[in-house]
Design a protein around this nucleic acid. Structure first.
Lengths: 246, 246
DNA sequence: CGCAGTTTAAATGTCTGACAATTTACTTGC
DNA sequence: GCAAGTAAATTGTCAGACATTTAAACTGCG
């Protein structure tokens, strides 16, 4: 474990970076125990609270886990797919909301990525995933469903489609794109006619994937992209007309 | 700002979660100042070091920035694209390295996503991005280039291709897929013949994008995918033959 | 009155020392 | 030999203090 040169940055940030580099570079293996807080404080020549702040930074990034007791300490943590999903979704959502990304850009990105999955999904989807897609379509067709529930179901449908590719790395990458779009989608009010249209396209996608017809799946997804974009445009127009002064 | 119920979890984790929720939900705007550490300590009824640990957790996620001095404090931070890129790349890299993701899976995911960008890139690429692609191709063709430099250039080429889509959200999503692959790519030793082949395909991609021919770009990318997969397979076979006992 | 320099106050950054809580390992008594 | 109790190691938390940084307030001089 290296020591820090004199620098202007926070000591806890420097120490966190030093340890993080050790983990990322592979110097430390999964489940390996870090030195105790007291030992780290000695090594880096800082106080224990400073070391603790550094460790909390790493814990926030899911890089370590801590355990109390005699054999306790901080351990290098295996980054699970679930943690990575959650990380990615949080980051993506914040990125979209904090940078005023317009609906069109986010929507285009989402569907472009989804269309990358569709051919693979058509090849490999399991019966389970098909069943999930069908179930969500059925849920979406129910009258009286709130806009939010409709969007929830929409996300679940598309997640199943993406998972159908049977590639966890792809699922991880797509999770951010699909889920982060939800707040934007929630801002749209869906009419009866809109939902009918979307459910119909979802059914076409499910049918195509069921039939392992990649081209048909892609075509349906392309239509869904166009339709969603037009809905977003309409919603944005309505919004700007309602509040012209703001 | 809400208080925490009695719970078994770390206080600093609870406080971090409470503040994080306030930020994510939109209760707090960008650049809004959080209460001072002393005030937070009062509000949550904990000590200042505990509050500080919570704030360091948030700082590690780029959710806040701190500033010293009279008008200092912790401020809600706008998550920039750069921060999000860095976040995503780190997470993706760790996910791949810590979960023994095989070359095939990562490679498939990467090229599937890239092919999603190619049509858009063919439409919108700027002269600048074309120039970058050409420059990297030229660099890759130079003899005596180390494998690592070759991979660096490969990443730069593909970044330019992805950026050509002119969709920052797409670029952000792809950054993780492309850059996280690099450590895996670095494990491959490229022969002269391999490089020739890859450079040729890169040139075909650049030509297609230059001519705004989406189909040709997709075809070239598909070939590159196949070729890269075959190289990876060969490398893996060689590796297992060299170390049969481990 | 205005400007420059100084002072002051507020805030984060860091340290010291201590105690609490938790978990394992050891020891002791039967 | 086993079980219960005890000790030790480690993280979690607290209190108080001082250092450092920054901007605003103040003061004195021209």
């Amino acid at each position: 474990m290296k020591i820090d040169p004199k620098s202007k940055a926070d000591l806890s940030a420097q120490i966190a970076k030093s340890i993080r580099d050790s983990i990322i570079s592979g110097d430390m293996d999964v489940d390996e125990r870090l030195p105790s807080e007291a030992e780290l404080a000695d090594q880096f020549d800082v106080s224990r609270p400073t070391v603790r702040e550094a460790l909390k930074r790493l814990a926030a990034q899911n890089l370590i886990r801590t355990q109390r007791g005699a054999t306790g300490g901080a351990f290098v943590r295996r980054l699970s797919y679930e943690d990575a999903y959650a990380n990615h979704i949080t980051t993506s959502t914040l990125l979209l909301s904090m940078n005023a990304v317009d609906f069109e850009t986010a929507c285009e990105a989402r569907y472009a990525l989804e269309r990358a999955c569709a051919p693979l999904s058509a090849l490999r989807r399991t019966p389970d995933q098909l069943a999930t897609m069908r179930a969500e379509i059925h849920r979406q067709a129910q009258p009286g469903l709130s806009d939010e529930s409709f969007c929830d179901s929409d996300v679940a449908f598309h997640r199943a489609l993406v998972d159908g590719a049977g590639n966890p790395v792809l699922s991880y990458q797509l999770a951010g794109a699909v889920e982060a779009m939800q707040p934007l989608m929630n801002m749209i009010t869906f009419t009866e006619r809109n939902r009918e249209m979307i459910v119909g396209l979802h059914a076409r996608i499910a049918d195509a994937v069921d039939a392992q017809d990649a081209l048909a799946a892609d075509a349906a997804l392309a239509e869904l992209t166009e339709y969603t974009l037009s809905l977003g445009e309409a919603a944005m127009n309505a919004r700007t007309q309602k509040t012209p002064s703001s």
